[in-house]
Design a protein around this nucleic acid. Structure first.
Lengths: 135, 135
DNA sequence: TTGCATCCGGTACCCGGGTACAGGCTTACC
DNA sequence: GGTAAGCCTGTACCCGGGTACCGGATGCAA
């Protein structure tokens, strides 16, 4: 007989929009909760913690699908190496993204240093715009 | 009496989907071209070059709205400092994004090194997951 | 002149992560 | 037992950058 929470309470405690709860339910991130006799959702308190976990994972760059998968994998088979492996793969993604942005940064820098004055009719010598990067 | 091009030809030369031409027209990136008597678009050949400029600007990280603005500003008043200023601002955006990603990378690294084994029930000591970043 | 490729306008859909609104029901408190 | 806050479902919309599909009209070549 735990103190079940209503959706608004869960949302507020987790710092999340109430609509987001239903959205996560649809996406399979949180389980369908019990219902009150009138049909209102009654959440166990752990849900708040789960939402915090989801937010933490999002901040780590995981998509909602990936988070759903991680939660799911953790729940069944407890396949230990999975989180590790996914974190390693995610680091590679992040590194690739950083490399892209670094290239872009360099190209912007060139544009500035060459003194480009127009996208369409730049008059600067050796204008870098036509090549502009390779992202 | 220049050799006007049909939309499919422009699209092919610029390496772009034909639908994208109409989309860019709607977005104000390319001007509405002349029409044939039957209503088909007849593009001047410069359009291909313009599309390449647009692609270059996109690779520099500018949004289509920003590109439209840059082209427009270049066409009228020839306000020289504008491209420079926008490139400087864009570098700041890129740097901020890189900083974010670097933070995320660090957090992922911590998760791996701490040996976290589950999003929801990690058993590692000093588990970094609850804090996980501040992006 | 006929046949096929292409183009037309309009509309709908895709990705990801939600948010908003409408119209009706339940719950909580006095 | 009244009233207001909160919840329900279903649906539509937002961002950015396009892509796809439809039925009908054109363009061009043989």
């Amino acid at each position: 007989m735990r103190p079940y929470l209503r959706s608004g309470e869960v949302a507020e405690r987790a710092g999340v929009n109430p609509q987001t709860l239903r959205y996560y339910e649809r996406r399979g991130l949180i389980a369908e909760p019990r219902r009150s006799p009138g049909g209102h959702r009654a959440y166990p308190p752990e849900t708040v913690a789960l939402l915090n976990v989801i937010k933490a994972a999002q901040r780590l760059g995981f998509t909602l699908d990936e988070v759903a998968d991680l939660i799911d994998t953790g729940r069944r088979g407890r396949s230990t190496p999975d989180l590790r492996a996914r974190a390693v793969a995610k680091i590679a993604e992040v590194d690739a993204r950083i490399a892209d942005l670094t290239t872009v940064r360099g190209a912007l820098d060139q544009v500035i240093r060459a003194g480009c004055d127009s996208l369409t009719d730049c008059t600067c010598p050796d204008c870098p715009l036509p090549q502009a990067d390779l992202t």
